[in-house]
Design a protein around this nucleic acid. Structure first.
Length: 228
DNA sequence: GCGACAG
DNA sequence: ATCTTGTCGC
């Protein structure tokens, strides 16, 4: 899949066209358990520069030890506005570009944003997974849409996130006393295996280690992009 | 019309 | 996401 991902045309899609594209592409997302054999997990994150540019980074880790194996990043101009629900059209190009620089071929990629827990069931993680044809999991710090019962305050508590009556993800308390995170499957993943993977990625902080380190890395790259 | 609204 | 200092708490 490449010509119809909405980002390889001569011009970028308008918000209206992007929405139509999501409705079409959502039908190609596969909901199934993550691979039984995972050896490498990756995480992507990005940061915006004041110059209308952004830096995307992808880190690869061994699984389940989570030792850093490789880092790749790209810097490029931002070409799509931020519109709630259309985040992937803004970040996907940079994420896939950074991913292609990786020498390792991750078994699964963690994305900083929603997957299925999206108005049209096509969040960033779904779009990235479809374009790369790779299992992906969405892990967001805030809710975009959906409803759920209150989540217990203890580490490990979770509530199903539903949209129009359908389960689309989990609201998960990764650490006691902190705000919960939103986990939803991207491509070639499902609710249970996605949450299981994320749970096993949590160490001492609220954000799963791979994404936390990806964030630290991109923040570092940004700092050095100012002084040089 | 009044909120809600990933990064 | 980003612009920003100090401050409260483990």
């Amino acid at each position: 899949m490449t010509p119809s991902d909405g980002l390889h045309g001569s011009s970028l899609p308008t918000p209206a066209e992007a929405i139509a594209l999501q409705k079409e592409l959502a039908g190609r997302v596969r909901l199934c358990p993550l691979p039984a054999r995972v050896r490498v997990v990756a995480a992507a994150d990005l940061s915006y520069l004041p110059s209308k540019e952004l830096i995307a980074v992808v880190l690869a880790f061994s699984w389940p030890s989570l030792e850093l194996l490789e880092t790749a990043h790209v810097r490029r101009p931002v070409e799509f506005p931020y519109v709630p629900g259309l985040l992937s059209f803004r970040e996907l190009p940079a994420v896939t570009a950074a991913f292609e620089k990786l020498r390792h071929r991750p078994d699964v990629l963690l994305c900083d944003g929603q997957g299925l827990a999206h108005p049209r069931r096509f969040g960033l993680a779904c779009h990235v997974g479809l374009v790369l044809d790779l299992p992906t999991v969405g892990c967001a710090k805030k809710r975009l849409c959906g409803d759920h019962d209150p989540v217990g305050t203890e580490k490990g508590c979770r509530s199903v996130l539903t949209l129009q009556g359908d389960p689309v993800g989990y609201v998960y308390r990764s650490r006691t006393g902190v705000k919960p995170i939103y986990v939803s499957p991207g491509h070639k993943a499902d609710l249970e295996s996605s949450l299981d993977l994320v749970e096993r990625c949590v160490r001492r902080y609220r954000i799963p280690e791979p994404l936390r380190l990806a964030h630290n890395t991109v923040t570092r790259l940004k700092k050095n992009a100012h002084s040089p």
